[in-house]
Simulated scan of single mutants.
Amino acid sequence: MPTGVAIRDVREQLFDAADRILLRDGPSALTSRALTTEAGCAKGVLHRHFDDFDDFLAQYVLDRVDRMVPQAAALRESAGTGALADNLADVLTAVFRSVAVAIVALVTFRDELRARLRQTWPAGVPVLTEAAIMIASYLRAEQDLGRIAPDADADTLAAMLIGSAHLLFADRTGAPPDADAVRKVVDGVIAPFAR
């Protein structure tokens, strides 16, 4: 890119380029050179907006967590409507068909990224932890409405759903699981507690 040409929304342009690389080629392909090439900008642009590549990665991961906020609100508002298993299967599919699986691998793959994330995110892998929080909040709302047993541990059920769904979606090179497979997992976890 020629010097002096203004780039609008540089952060978003770089974050979107990271999404494309992760989804297409996986975490090992996400390098600063691949990123700036995919974004169509000079490598210096990355370093003008971020301290270094791991700073970019940490901000990227946290941005993708922030993007889950509207999804969490919509899920919580759906409490009391539709079938529990359908609501949960839909949200798990949305989470894991996004870039979340690749982000999990990326965080696992890069020690410095994990260290940076620990400065603001104390435990877990941010996208999975946020998804578990979102689902637990929904389950508690359903408990308040009597659709989940009052003695059910929403946090444990949410963790079980996230872990089980992650196993279904973990192979990014294979075909994603179909709706029936996701629904079967959800039913297996929540059936004993659904009312």
Rank of each mutant, 00 (worst) to 15 (best):
D151S: 12
G44N: 01
P122I: 13
R24C: 10
Q143W: 07
D86P: 04
V95Y: 13
S98A: 14
D180L: 13
V104S: 07
G40A: 08
D187A: 03
V65G: 03
L139Q: 02
F169R: 02
G40N: 06
T129I: 10
A179K: 08
A18Y: 00
A136V: 08
A79W: 08
V69P: 05
V107D: 11
Y60E: 11
E38Y: 07
D153H: 04
G80H: 02
D52E: 14
V185S: 02
Q59G: 10
T108I: 11
Q119R: 15
M68I: 14
P70F: 11
E12F: 13
S137V: 14
V182P: 01
A131L: 01
A79R: 01
I103P: 04
Q59L: 13
D54I: 14
G4E: 03
L157N: 00
L168N: 01
T173W: 02
F56N: 03
C41W: 06
G163T: 09
L57D: 04
E38R: 08
C41Y: 08
I148L: 06
M68Y: 08
D25K: 07
D25W: 10
E142T: 10
H49N: 15
R67A: 14
A17K: 00
V186N: 00
G124K: 02
L88A: 01
I7M: 07
I103T: 09
A72C: 09
W121P: 04
L168H: 01
Q143C: 06
F56V: 12
R8T: 11
D144T: 13
K43S: 09
M134Q: 07
C41K: 05
F15W: 10
S98C: 12
L75T: 09
V104D: 11
G188P: 01
I7K: 01
V107W: 11
G40E: 14
D9L: 11
G124F: 12
A100R: 00
F169E: 05
D16P: 06
V182C: 02
I190R: 00
I133L: 11
L57Y: 05
A181M: 06
L168G: 02
V91I: 12
S28A: 14
N87D: 02
V104C: 06
I103Y: 02
L139K: 01
L46A: 09
T36H: 04
M134H: 05
Q71V: 15
T129H: 10
A85H: 08
D86I: 10
R195H: 11
S32T: 12
V125H: 08
R20A: 13
S28D: 15
G124P: 03
C41R: 08
D9Q: 11
A79V: 05
Q143A: 07
L161Q: 00
D144N: 12
A73K: 15
H166M: 14
D111C: 09
A158V: 07
S28V: 15
P70V: 09
Q119N: 13
I135R: 01
V189G: 01
A131H: 04
I21C: 06
L30W: 03
Q143G: 06
A165M: 03
